[in-house]
């Protein structure tokens, strides 16, 4: 075996060994999940409705949309998420709506209840309604990352800017953290 070939072979062996060591240590520390996939979700209880979801997503119209946990909704006539705080007329006029894009729809169910649904094509994830609902209502409106729109970027560009660190990777088995099903975790450890 000539010198060149020897260097070539031993170099390859060293690099292969390095890769094996790297992979081995990841496997040994149980840092790899064979059947797992992780997707981005917002913890609705950590979210502070700062409005960055509307602007920081890599998509033009954010993959974060308002989600309505109907099971928590009070079906209020005076909806804190639908109406501007000081509006006088409780009608569907644009001037009295809080939503800047008119994505929140109000439908009469029965006296005195109204159902609110979200038009995801219009929603930009600005969280104005979420803030209103959280301040004056049950907090049934909340933001969530929608997986039909989310590109599942390697690192979510909103999570980097989220002031309350509400966005994190969750296992694909629990792909949605939706209020109602997803409960606020028990009182976190005192800081």
């Amino acid at each position: 075996m000539d010198r060149k070939k020897f260097i070539n072979n031993s170099g390859r062996l060293v690099l292969l060994g390095g890769l094996a060591y790297l992979t081995g240590s990841i496997i040994y520390q149980r840092k790899v999940s064979a059947s797992g996939k992780y997707v981005w979700q917002i913890d609705p209880f950590k979210c502070t409705q700062c409005g960055r979801c509307a602007t920081e997503c890599v998509r033009d119209l954010s993959a974060v949309k308002c989600v309505h946990a109907y099971s928590l909704c009070g079906y209020c006539d005076l909806c804190g998420g639908y109406f501007k705080p000081n509006t006088h007329k409780l009608n569907t006029g644009a001037e009295s709506q809080l939503c800047p894009t008119g994505a929140l729809n109000r439908k009469f169910v029965e006296e005195p209840f109204f159902q609110y649904t979200i038009d995801e094509k219009l929603c930009n994830g600005c969280a104005k309604c979420v803030k209103g609902c959280g301040s004056f209502g049950n907090g049934s409106l909340h933001l969530q990352i929608r997986h039909d729109l989310c590109q599942n970027c390697n690192e979510c560009s909103i999570s980097r800017m989220c002031p309350s660190n509400a966005i994190s990777r969750v296992p694909i088995e629990t792909a949605y953290l939706i209020k109602g099903d997803f409960k606020k975790p028990a009182v976190s450890t005192p800081k």
């Binding site: 996939k37 109907y70 997986h147 039909d148 694909i172």
Partner: peptide, 13 residues
């Protein structure tokens, strides 16, 4: 009947 929030599935493993 109360609707349930839709949850479009992410791309599978």
């Amino acid at each position: 009947t109360q609707p349930t929030p839709t949850t479009p599935e992410p791309r599978g493993v």
